[in-house]
Write a protein that binds this DNA or RNA. Structure first.
Lengths: 202, 202
DNA sequence: TTGAATGTTCTCTTTTTGTTCTCTATTATC
DNA sequence: GATAATAGAGAACAAAAAGAGAACATTCAA
């Protein structure tokens, strides 16, 4: 079981790793959790290691390696822990409990990449100007998928996909003021399919 | 895993390649990352090469070649790195390169939690039924913020916030078929403000 | 062909970091 | 009240890494 200092340490390391892409030094951890001694941090790290929550490459700088499998379903996982707060026994209209969001869905897949959307062509599907979409790289799609398509090898665009008879493909913008356009299949190259979308309000 | 120097080096090379259309020399990299020694840069390059993040044509000037796909494959990337694939030198209409997404905005702050939205009251703001919103827990808000409000201590709801004269508060749904409603301030308790939104298509 | 620019390989020094201690203050437990 | 347990500070040391820079090899363009 983790004591408060160890929990704080682990969370700091998780956050640092996600933000910076490498593990922190002991000094950075000390600074991050509000103490001054590297020696103390070292003690926490050793304790966390003995609990298999991370491993350390000895004597290596930034040698901490998180063990992500170890904490599935635990409150220390790098996820957004959910709710309880609002609900608090009250009836809720627009809101519903959900147990966790695992941000891993949005990262760590080698076939995925992200794009920032400009323009309003998918506005009515809730994809706004400035949003980020996560694309899974593939060259086929199903009807109804939102895809990144390359038209004539030149123009990349985000549209909903529909296969028509006679080798035609319909690219549908989700915006009432824009029209769907049909293309010969040869002109369209599917670059990937939207699997996620996110937006920051800050 | 990349240490900060290697990260800095890689990012500089990426940026340089995008801007100038060719890879930088060691001197340019040294200059770009703020050191003076080509030898040191060479060490970083070799390390990045051993991690398959780039390859170098030996002894060739400007012989660095980025391997973008490998970069995307890092286990805990701070970012979802982009580009290369779609762009491929082509003009792009609805899409724009972006160098990174920082997922840190979406996690681990003890003051944040997430809710799954049900209902269509914020549809026109791009928040759809089933989306997840990240809420920062606070009990004040600015005009225009999207907030979670508790009405009469009973009903929690997601609306855009506007303060009116005479101690009234207007809660505005973003849906043409619904009407804004004004409440006495005492009836409204602000639970938090939306700071992020995400949606999974899988 | 030639020379400046560049890549490559070294060694050396300094700084940073991990590690192990001991010591003190505080808190909990008997 | 005595004792043990714990959190933290900080010193000391070895190892690792960062960086400077010299020396040499190779490219490439004039």
């Amino acid at each position: 079981m983790l004591n408060p200092s160890e929990t704080k340490t682990l969370k700091f390391i998780q956050k640092y790793c996600i933000e910076k892409g490498c593990s922190p030094t002991l000094t950075e951890i000390a600074d991050g959790i509000g103490i001054k001694s590297r020696g103390v941090v070292h003690r926490y790290i050793k304790s966390l290691e003995s609990q298999k929550l991370l491993s350390v490459a000895s004597n290596r700088k930034r040698g901490i390696c998180l063990n992500l499998e170890a904490y599935e379903n635990q409150s220390i996982a790098p996820i957004i822990p959910l709710l309880g707060r609002i609900a608090a026994g009250q009836p809720i209209e627009a809101i519903e409990d959900r147990h966790e969001i695992n941000l891993a869905d949005f990262i760590m897949d080698p076939d995925r990449f992200a794009l920032q959307v400009t323009g309003e062509s998918m506005m009515d599907a809730g994809i706004l100007d400035g949003d980020t979409v996560i694309i899974k790289h593939q060259n086929t799609a199903n009807n109804g998928d939102i895809i990144v398509a390359l038209i004539d090898g030149l123009e990349a665009t985000l549209k909903r996909f529909k296969r028509l008879p006679k080798g035609m493909i319909l690219l549908i913008p989700e915006n009432k003021s824009m029209e769907a356009i049909a293309y010969e299949a040869e002109r369209i190259q599917i670059q990937g399919v939207v699997v996620g979308q996110l937006r920051s309000y800050q």
